[in-house]
Design a protein around this nucleic acid. Structure first.
Lengths: 222, 222
DNA sequence: GTTAGCATGTAAGGAGTTACATGATTTT
DNA sequence: AAAATCATGTAACTCCTTACATGCTAAC
């Protein structure tokens, strides 16, 4: 009933933080920007939006259609007509809540389902948290590799070629992801050191705006 | 209520086809042999087993505990006691049904959730079907790549570094899987040609036992 | 003037998980 | 005799999808 998910909720808050949007647009962003990893349908998006509104993290704005009003043919039907295109905007509480979520580094943040979306919003995440999430993810994967190697050693001879190939390919993928994470961690560390030289010591604040940001978000639409 | 899944059902039938097992053992196999890709809990396994029994694809065998009966202390409580360890065995109908499933090459067989488990049982799958599944999977991934490239071209400049890196890494993974599939398809084709030379033309039967098999399964337990 | 795409929703259901409950057997 | 691990199960819940229902607007 409550439709408060994990991933979807997180992603919606994160995208709306960048700029207000209506559901349809939001869904497209969800399935391209955060691409590959997950795809959501309206059947989960709209109920999720309603739930977030109820908890006071979003507000619905009936949308006065600023630029599309320019089109003169449209307003013939009815002035307020045109099936209200509901634009959702993050409230102050919503923003606060999202920042809470961003600062979390618990075990599930580096599980498969969550890691992708966490990474997608690393631009808004503090360096400490980024590091913990990356390192957590890496050691999670290394654990998994160890288990796979052990189980492979135990069962190698009674598996047929295809099963074996599947395991091999699976392990290789995990190994590759570990290397990727290692590179990312390295480059975070370098960035950290450079920042350390600049200001001699780390700034005290943990959360939020130590990101250089990609400019003030003036892109309301495509 | 019915608990007839897709992947889980398929995997259970496939593993039980190799040899009868009880639930606990089955679950371990599920989470190692078919490794990386999925993990199942008892909460889904046992109801699934019940459902498969109801449909006549499995039978429960109360398990006379052949070797464990040797242990003399156990039978004190009650002769039929000792919390029946239920061994599940595939029926003739179950086997037939599984072979039907094996021969399917519909669109969902190459989707993410299904492909892994399909591949895991390629040892029992006919060469034609293997080819169709591999090629279907590859073109599915190529489609996805095309979409990703298009969306990346459209949105590159308004994405921050992390989102961009996530996309890049995602695409690279997909590209690697495509290359892997291409190699597999190549090697299937070679095998096919060699088989063609041996018998001049392809054998008529499509399903089942053209596998060399990994020996008669005499391994009931670890 | 009809197809395609934009836009918003709901009801039912599928595929699984978590947490709980129980008890036997093996290892320490 | 305590702890681990084997073994089986159920109820409630989660998170998402499919299929449906509706209507507007743009393009062909």
């Amino acid at each position: 009933m409550s439709r408060r998910s994990g991933v979807l909720e997180f992603a919606v808050l994160g995208l709306l933080r960048e700029s207000p949007m209506h559901g349809y647009e939001l869904r497209k962003r969800l399935n391209t920007s955060l691409g590959v990893f997950r795809a959501f349908s309206y059947g989960s998006l709209y109920p999720c939006l309603k739930a977030l509104v109820q908890r006071g993290w979003l507000v619905e704005e009936p949308s006065a259609q600023p630029e599309e009003q320019l089109n003169p043919r449209a307003q013939a039907g009815s002035l307020a007509g045109r099936r209200a295109k509901i634009v959702y905007r993050l409230t102050a509480e919503g923003k606060e809540h999202f920042e809470d979520l961003l600062s979390q580094t618990g075990p599930d943040t580096w599980e498969d389902e969550h890691f992708g979306v966490r990474f997608a919003f690393f631009g808004q995440t503090s360096r400490d948290v980024r590091m913990r999430v990356l390192e957590g993810r890496r050691s999670r994967l290394e654990e998994r590799l160890a288990k796979m190697r052990a189980s492979l050693a135990r069962t190698r001879e009674r598996l047929d070629d295809y099963t074996l190939e599947l395991q091999r390919h699976g392990m290789e993928s995990v190994e590759r992801e570990v290397r990727w994470l290692t590179e990312l961690i390295e480059s975070e560390r370098k960035g950290s050191e450079r920042a350390g030289q600049e200001s001699t010591r780390r700034p005290a604040r943990e959360t939020g705006s130590d990101r250089p940001s990609s400019g003030p978000s003036d892109n309301t639409d495509r």
